[in-house]
């Protein structure tokens, strides 16, 4: 063995900061979820158009997913350049596939 692996356990301050960040993300996710469900209840009662609610829902989902990825999955942290790159490529392919299949399965395009 060349050397014992080096690492540093998180300190008290760091942990406190992280813990409050994660708690905020958790609360924010709950708020976003309630907003999404609320919008749908509102729409069912005729308060908003379906098209608007769909766009709103997708927006909320993207924000909440970003919370998950950047904060909880530590994508924002240092040393995550490669994971970020592949995350973005994954998003690119995802968008291409969903839009492609959605537009080109039942109807002809133009």
């Amino acid at each position: 063995m060349a050397a014992e692996p080096m690492f540093s356990p998180s300190g008290e301050r760091e942990t406190k900061k992280e813990r409050s960040l994660h708690t905020v993300a958790f609360l924010a996710s709950i708020v976003l979820t309630i907003l999404a469900f609320g919008a749908v209840v509102y729409a069912i009662e005729g308060g908003a158009s379906a098209g608007f609610v769909v766009a709103f829902l997708v927006g909320l989902a993207v924000v909440q997913a970003a919370f998950q990825a950047y904060i909880w999955m530590h994508l924002k942290d240092e040393g995550h350049a490669v994971p970020q790159l592949f995350f973005y490529v994954g998003v690119y392919v995802t968008v291409v596939i969903v839009i492609g299949i959605l537009l080109m399965s039942w109807w002809t395009v133009a």
């Binding site: 080109m104 109807w107 002809t108 395009v109």
Partner: peptide, 8 residues
Amino acid sequence: TVGLGPLA
């Protein structure tokens, strides 16, 4: 030749 339309 599936017929997805000229734009596609």
